[in-house]
Amino acid sequence: MQGTRHHLINFIPKLLAATSTKRLRIYRTLLKVIAHKAVPERPGRSEPRVRKRRPKIYPLMTKPRHELRKQLQTA
Rank of each mutant, 00 (worst) to 15 (best):
K32N: 12
R65K: 13
G44E: 04
A35G: 06
L68Q: 09
A35L: 05
V39A: 12
R69I: 15
V50F: 06
I12W: 07
Q73V: 13
I57D: 10
I9G: 02
A18L: 01
P48M: 03
P43T: 08
T4N: 10
E47D: 09
R51P: 02
T21R: 06
H36F: 11
S20Q: 09
H6T: 15
L16T: 07
K70L: 13
P43R: 12
Q71F: 04
L72V: 02
P43K: 14
T62Q: 10
R45W: 14
M61Q: 14
Q2Y: 10
T29A: 13
V50E: 06
Q71T: 04
G44S: 04
K52R: 03
K63M: 06
Q73A: 14
P40W: 04
H66I: 14
A35T: 00
G3P: 11
H7C: 02
T62C: 06
V50A: 08
A35S: 08
L15M: 07
V33T: 11
K52V: 14
E47F: 15
I9T: 10
L68P: 00
L31M: 12
L16S: 04
H7A: 13
R49L: 15
G3V: 08
E47R: 11
Q73W: 06
G3W: 08
K70I: 06
K52A: 08
Y27L: 15
H7T: 07
V33K: 02
L68H: 01
F11Q: 03
R49C: 07
R69T: 14
T62E: 12
I26E: 03
E41K: 08
S20E: 12
K14N: 12
A35D: 03
I34R: 01
I34Q: 02
Y27D: 03
T29S: 11
A75W: 09
K63E: 04
P43C: 05
R53C: 05
M1D: 08
S20D: 14
M61D: 10
L15F: 03
T29E: 14
K37R: 06
R45K: 08
K63W: 02
P40M: 02
P59A: 03
N10E: 15
P40E: 07
P13A: 02
K37V: 01
E41T: 12
K56P: 00
H7R: 14
Y58K: 03
L8D: 03
Q71E: 12
T74W: 00
